[in-house]
């Protein structure tokens, strides 16, 4: 691809801080990607609207609050409803091991939990783009 990879980094739900998301955003920037950062307390609808207008290759979401089983699949479904099928969707944050299979099944293509190296995230994105 002869253009920068565009990534929406989004924080759905009611988390109080976005330290982790900012670390990821910075790492992706340093890997040559264009990161659209939308800040805290996004609804799934806002995330999907931003993903469409920004025509991103990747939607990367982070949740610390525990609402991942509800909010992550909601974003996947809304994108589907809009007919968007060429966006890689990944998630991260404080997510229990037991919840991961359900999230993967519902269309999140990777879940990165605390301790993940930013290099792994970058590699995963580069190897799994859909367009």
């Amino acid at each position: 691809m002869d253009r920068p990879i565009r990534v929406l980094v989004a924080k759905p739900g009611l988390d109080g801080h976005d330290r982790g998301a900012k670390v990821i955003a910075r790492a992706l920037r340093d890997a040559g990607m264009e990161v659209i950062y939308t800040g805290l307390r996004q609804t799934p609808e806002q995330i999907v609207a931003a993903a469409i207008q920004e025509d991103v290759d990747v939607v990367a979401m982070s949740i610390l609050s525990g609402a991942h089983n509800h909010l992550f699949p909601r974003v996947v479904n809304l994108l589907k409803e809009e007919g968007v099928d060429d966006v890689l969707i990944i998630g991260g944050g404080v997510i229990p091991e037991d919840d991961i299979p359900f999230l993967l099944e519902s269309g999140i293509e990777a879940i990165f939990t605390p301790g993940t190296s930013t290099k792994d995230v970058i590699e995963f994105i580069k190897n799994n783009l859909k367009r």
């Binding site: 910075r26 264009e34 800040g39 806002q46 207008q53």
Partner: peptide, 30 residues
């Protein structure tokens, strides 16, 4: 960034409630 070619495009943070308005289109560019 002149070094990595990457960018953080953060202007949408201030415009989040416009995102859902069907008569508004916001695009961030590096």
């Amino acid at each position: 960034s002149p070094f990595s070619g990457g960018a953080i495009l953060g202007d949408r943070i201030r415009m989040n409630d416009l995102s859902l308005d069907k008569n508004v289109f916001i695009r961030s560019m590096g």
